[in-house]
Design a protein around this nucleic acid. Structure first.
Lengths: 259, 259
DNA sequence: CAGTGGTCTAGACCACTGG
DNA sequence: CAGTGGTCTAGACCACTGC
């Protein structure tokens, strides 16, 4: 790919052709950086070239590159570290163990939380149902990986998760691989399958568990649970995971900041 | 207040006194703008001076003011409109009716949702309990306003809310005022009491309703509900409202975007 | 048309990191 | 110390709004 793939010249002058859709230079730079991230030119955890280097590469000023990186940084795709450089964000960072998990203990601060104990209940391949296929943008009958697992905190089963992954990108994922891996599941997806989850949407309801769920979570019937249905996306807004979690909220809560 | 209340000169040179805590100019400008917002110099919905005017007022460049406004804008305290100016954010904006309410209908897009029907069940003054007082940063025994109301969508009772407000700032708030007002409650707080809610935190659990709640929401016992406990803050991180909502999630869900 | 926010540049200097 | 991101400035021009 050339370093001048965008349609404005270095001074931001628009094409002479009538172009009602105006896109600022820094947005186009942002797009180019995004492409390099998708293509794997810079991998999660690695550093990207310095602002000056990128400015030279794209033939724009440092300020323009800066604004592009600013946005990618606030989108949590890049992480800036003064004096060191700019790095590709990763779920494997030691700092925040579970970036998408918003369940917190009612008492005590989250940081002192002991790491969750994970147990894979089931992991099998099957054909996508209509519902699952639609959410994951698959064709009817495409292969899907289905996983069920339980997370326990301090020995108490607290989260039951069913998740569905498109078969193709996750070829070779087995219960063993999942069990052996010590760290966030999304970190394994990054290192083993090159799939980086960028954002997600959750729909939350209150539900009554069925018998199987009661048994796995060791609760008595009628104990209300939080149903958390998550769709996680990679770059390009491609859905790559459907996950339905059932959270026991007797001593935990789902935390959300509004602004 | 002078226009030079900050401790750096116009070129950003630090005080000669040893100052281990470095604060960039634009952060200080941000603080000054924040003060003007708190003091009511610019009221919700109104426009603030242009970037050039503010730059002159604070004796800095337009770019520095710009960066300050950028942050306030991404904090949802200001709203920029190209060609028109920069305005103080308000809950009264026609566009987004309920900025803090994340309950969405399962079917149909949120925008076509009919406005909620509101009904005040109860509104009384009492002394703060230990729990409430702690959350609202009141002294034990301070006056507190307690409100209970029900929101219905398309005729179906869906949300039961209990809320507690500090008595002093909301002096004069009655069930009548609440009932008569047509619009978001937070908009009424702004216009009638000069209290602007800036951010909030929510803790969500799944619960079983009691008899009174079943009756008000017209549901049968054991129907699980979402318990949404919200603390809302004004400027300065001052807590100004505790609200406990019970959401019926049979045909609605709590929506959350993760990134 | 003037006035607003939005983009872009070029250059200077500061704060932080690591060798 | 050199290299990185972070701040600040000054000036030019663009896109949008409303009179």
């Amino acid at each position: 790919m050339t370093s001048q793939a965008f349609s404005l010249d270095a001074n931001g002058l628009p094409d002479s052709t009538s172009a009602p859709a105006f896109s600022p230079l820094y947005q186009q730079i942002k797009g180019l950086i995004l492409q390099s991230l998708q293509s794997g030119e810079w991998k999660p955890g690695e550093g990207i070239p310095s602002e000056m280097d990128l400015a030279a590469r794209y033939r724009v000023s440092q300020g323009t590159v800066r604004k592009a990186i600013d946005e990618l940084s606030s989108d949590n795709l890049l992480i800036r570290r003064q004096g060191k450089g700019t790095f590709v964000a990763t779920h494997a960072a030691h700092q925040v163990q579970y970036r998408f998990l918003k369940l917190m203990p009612d008492l005590g601060n989250p940081k002192s939380e002991v790491p969750a104990q994970r147990k894979i209940i089931d992991c099998k391949r099957l054909r996508a149902s209509a519902d699952i296929g639609r959410v994951l943008a698959l064709r009817a009958g495409d292969a899907v990986l289905q996983v069920r697992r339980v997370l326990s905190f301090a020995g108490a089963p607290t989260i039951l998760e069913d998740l569905w992954l498109p078969g193709a990108p996750f070829k070779g994922l087995t219960a063993e691989r999942l069990s052996e891996y010590d760290g966030p599941m999304y970190a394994l997806f990054e290192t083993e399958f090159g799939v980086r989850m960028v954002r997600a949407e959750e729909k939350i309801k209150a539900v009554v568990p069925d018998a199987a769920q009661c048994k796995l979570l060791e609760i008595k019937p009628q104990t209300p649970l939080l149903s958390v249905e998550r769709v996680a996306y990679t770059y390009n807004d491609t859905p790559m995971e459907l996950r339905r979690g059932f959270y026991l909220t007797t001593s935990h809560h789902y935390h959300n900041d509004l602004n």
